[in-house]
Design a protein around this nucleic acid. Structure first.
Length: 564
RNA sequence: UCCCCGAUCGUCUAACGGUAGGACAGCGGCCUUUGGAGCCGUGAGUCGUGGUUCGAAUCCAUGUCGGGGAGCCA
């Protein structure tokens, strides 16, 4: 079996099908896919999986992918969503062959409906929604024929034309396929093809007052576009026989539908309905809130398309319905950022340190490496002076065992700077540490002592006189439960919202190299994590988002100790 | 109760009747001017029961468990 070039990191059953189809020349050896979102919400991580699959596979086999908006329901679709989707797909790094809309096919779809009526395979039904449900039967009992099922072709043609002409009010009639009311597959029990909806459509305006159901539009849209492999999620498995039926009766190109398991992630909800609810009820600051799993949100958070693509490539594709660990995604974010992003020092919760034996008005410029993973990133200078800030967390008056940062009498290294030894602690009336005293070893400039003396820890710092202030937003998962949908009787997913998902830190002290940062800039704050400049920043007031923390093995030790 | 789909380390995923492998997570170590990164090592799995076969994660039967299905939503 010959493997295509550009083999992805991992194969999957859909790819295997494409390889087999190419071998057997099933679709003339070509692959044409499509990504078919409904423009009724923002794209999220689950869509990223589908996008990577559709575009990735087509590209691998030398085929093309269309972006098609399945806009068959004017009630909930909007241009804003179309725009965001286009923007998101581009950002992810994919280029579509054509950008299309199911609404482009409304006339063709209508003509095909007429054809089915003429073939005696569709009829106009006057049953109100309530009644139609009764006639449909149940999961265990067959349905019964609509009393309108045997209308003549002429009458159906006339009625359908008048539906289109706007002669009837919303919900008065439907066009239904005539299939099998006894089918164990409910989708085959004379499903609705068209409903009357006097609604303004975001693209066709008021041209139509009847709109095709997704089930009637989707397969034919694929067919029109010559889609070979129509990839969709598992819940459409039961619909496949219906899609097959339509294209067979119509005698048109028959795309091959393949269903895969949608993405689930721990601590995350990936349902458009729930995401919309989070936005409209104000639980987050908008679709692009950095805590949201939307592509707009994670982009603002600082995730990269490269990391996302790696993640999607490695999670695999199957039909199992599992839940992926958020940690795996974060791993790929760190992996990507680690090699591309510059290091810089920032103190988020500052405590002042006065270096008693350092001259009062001297400033030294110390050289600091920008990225140990990338020699080409070069180096910069960092100002050092008598008063500096360090992280509150890096000092313990009474150090627990295995804590080897600063504590009274202990010596640590200031990154790219000097060794300092803590000589005193200044507290306020409440007993809180407000300032530390220290001495430094001038011979240790740059970070090494000529006498070969070792220190256990290296901590980051910022010169007080040179620091720039900033706001830093530290995020945790939006939900505190691995599976946010798991709730006790009577509760809902909102009960699992993590009250600590956003912590806003102000008065953070940044190294001066960060002046002039612009939204989207990404850096690593040494020892803390990856951060990016938020769009809320103004030239005088930088705002950073924590994209993801660095792995922290001391935190693990600490947790373990506390658990004892 | 009826139909469809699925079940492999903690999680996700490979195997296509012939040695159950990888990634993440975990654990141990090395290295380190980030308790970062990197490197090395290690524990951990075929849902149950029958059957077919020289040989079964894979094929068959059956049970169990999980997911989906009765919108004029997609």
């Amino acid at each position: 079996m010959s493997e295509p070039s550009n083999t992805p990191t991992q194969s999957n059953f859909i790819r295997d099908i494409m390889i087999a189809d190419r071998e057997s020349n099933k679709h003339g050896g070509t692959v044409r896919t499509r990504f078919p979102p409904e423009p009724n919400g923002y794209l999220h991580l689950g869509h990223a999986k589908s996008i990577c699959l559709n575009f990735g596979l087509a590209a691998e086999f030398g085929g093309t992918t269309n972006l098609r908006f399945d806009d068959t329901n004017p009630a909930r679709e909007e241009q804003e969503y179309v725009d965001s989707i286009i923007d998101n797909v581009r950002w992810l790094g994919f280029q579509w062959d054509k950008a299309l809309f199911a609404s482009d096919y409304f006339e063709q779809l209508y003509q095909w409906a007429v054809q089915l009526i003429k073939q005696g395979q569709a009829f106009v039904c006057d049953l109100p929604a309530e009644e139609m449900r009764k006639y449909r039967g149940t999961l265990t009992e067959p349905g019964t024929h609509s009393p309108y099922r045997d209308r003549s072709i002429e009458e159906n043609l006339d009625l359908f034309a008048r539906m289109r002409a706007g002669e009837f009010p919303d919900g008065a009639r439907t066009l239904r396929a005539k299939i099998d009311m006894a089918s164990p597959n409910l989708n085959m029990r004379d499903p609705v093809m068209y409903r009357i909806l006097h609604a303004h459509h975001h693209r066709t305006g008021d041209d139509w007052c009847i709109y095709p159901m997704y089930d009637y539009a989707h397969g034919q849209s694929d067919s029109i576009e010559g889609i070979t492999h129509s990839i969709c999620t598992l819940e459409f498995e039961d619909h496949r026989p219906l899609y097959d039926w339509f294209v067979e009766q119509l005698g048109i190109h028959h795309p091959q539908q393949i269903e895969f398991d949608r993405l689930n992630l721990t601590y995350t909800v990936l349902s458009k309905r729930k995401l919309l609810q989070l936005v409209t009820e104000g639980h987050v600051r908008g679709w692009d809130d950095p805590r949201m799993p939307t592509l707009s949100g994670i982009r603002r958070r600082g995730y990269t398309p490269e990391a996302l693509r790696s993640f999607c490539g490695v999670i695999g594709v199957g039909k199992t319905n599992g839940i992926n660990e958020l940690g795996l995604l974060e791993h790929y974010v760190r992996e990507d950022l680690n090699k591309r992003v510059n290091r810089v020092m920032a103190v988020l919760r500052p405590v002042k340190v006065v270096i008693e034996n350092y001259p009062d008005d001297t400033v030294e410029l110390l050289e600091a490496v920008n990225n140990p993973e990338d020699a080409a990133a070069g180096s910069r200078t960092v100002p050092f002076s008598k008063v500096i800030y360090i992280e509150q967390d890096d000092f313990r008056e009474v150090p627990p065992k295995q804590f080897y940062r600063l504590s009274p009498g202990k010596e640590v290294r200031l990154r790219w700077g000097f060794f300092i030894t803590c000589t005193g602690v200044v507290k306020n009336d409440a007993g809180e540490v407000v300032e530390l005293r220290a001495t430094y070893d001038p011979a240790s400039r740059g970070g090494n002592s000529p006498d070969g003396r070792k220190v256990k820890a290296t901590i980051h710092w910022v010169s007080a006189a040179h620091a720039i202030d900033a706001e830093v937003r530290v995020y945790e998962t939006l939900f505190s439960k691995e599976n946010p949908n798991q709730v006790p009787e009577g509760g809902d997913f909102l009960d699992n919202i993590n009250p600590n998902s956003l912590e806003v830190l102000t008065g953070c002290k940044l190294e001066p190299a960060l002046v002039g940062s612009v939204p989207g800039d990404k850096v690593q704050f040494e020892r803390l994590g990856y951060f990016c400049v938020d769009n809320d920043s103004t030239p005088g007031n930088l705002v950073f988002n924590r994209t993801v923390a660095l792995r922290d093995s001391y935190a693990k030790i600490e947790k373990r100790e506390q658990g004892k």
